[in-house]
């Protein structure tokens, strides 16, 4: 199947900001990816607040693989968060941006204070540019209080001699899993 233009652009732009892009069929594959990655990187836990009814499935896989599964009160676990797993609301191809409703404190902690951030993004939720989301975002901002995040790549700095260095405050890796199926 030919890939729509915005998907091609998304992948290309993501690469430019060191975001690792993979395609998965469904949540189940996304969970497997997340768990395999955590094991490969030697991490002990996965934090996934806000997964709703999907949480138990991920919890089961974590358990099977000997990983701690965290879903709430993440402040208490700071320093012990390996991977933060989230589902993005939107993707913006032009800038390889994940748009994530981050109203929940736990979600913010999971996406900022873990070593790795893995975000699943349903393919149907990719738009060409931010302008295409203007109405939607305005609506989200007006549903208050609201904390909306654009995340485009892993945390970075160039403050020492302009040398690009990844992972200053936030995650050291960002993985974007483009998902074929809609969320169930």
């Amino acid at each position: 199947m030919e890939q729509p233009q915005s998907l091609v652009l998304m992948k290309q732009r993501a690469e430019a900001v060191q975001t690792v892009v993979s395609e998965v069929r469904n949540m189940r594959e996304a969970f497997d990816y997340c768990v395999e990655l955590a094991k490969k990187e030697g991490l002990q836990s996965i934090a996934a607040p806000g997964l709703g009814k999907n949480a138990s499935a991920l919890g089961t896989i974590c358990k099977k693989n000997g990983l701690n599964f965290l879903t709430k009160n993440l402040r208490e676990h700071i320093g012990r968060i390996g991977t933060g797993f989230t589902v993005a609301n939107w993707g913006i191809a032009e800038t390889a941006t994940l748009v994530i409703d981050s109203g929940s404190e736990d979600l913010r902690i999971a996406t900022m204070l873990g070593e790795i951030h893995v975000a699943a993004l349903p393919r149907s939720r990719i738009v060409a540019d931010a302008a295409a989301l203007e109405e939607e975002l305005t609506r989200m901002m007006k549903t208050t209080p609201s904390y909306l995040s654009f995340i485009s790549g892993a945390s970075r700095t160039a403050d020492i001699e302009r040398v690009l260095t990844i992972g200053v405050h936030g995650p050291q890796q960002l993985h974007m899993l483009i998902m074929e199926e809609e969320l169930l």
């Binding site: 900001v17 009160n73 800038t95 941006t97 404190e105 931010a130 609201s146 904390y147 654009f150 892993a154």
Partner: peptide, 28 residues
């Protein structure tokens, strides 16, 4: 935002753009 990061550092966007409206959740 289209111009800012491009003109500042030659990035198409900065890594984190955060939009905050009102008093958001804070468990402490």
């Amino acid at each position: 935002l289209t111009a800012l990061p491009r003109n500042a550092t030659g990035q198409v966007i900065s890594t984190y753009v955060t939009w905050i409206t009102g008093a958001t959740e804070c468990k402490t």
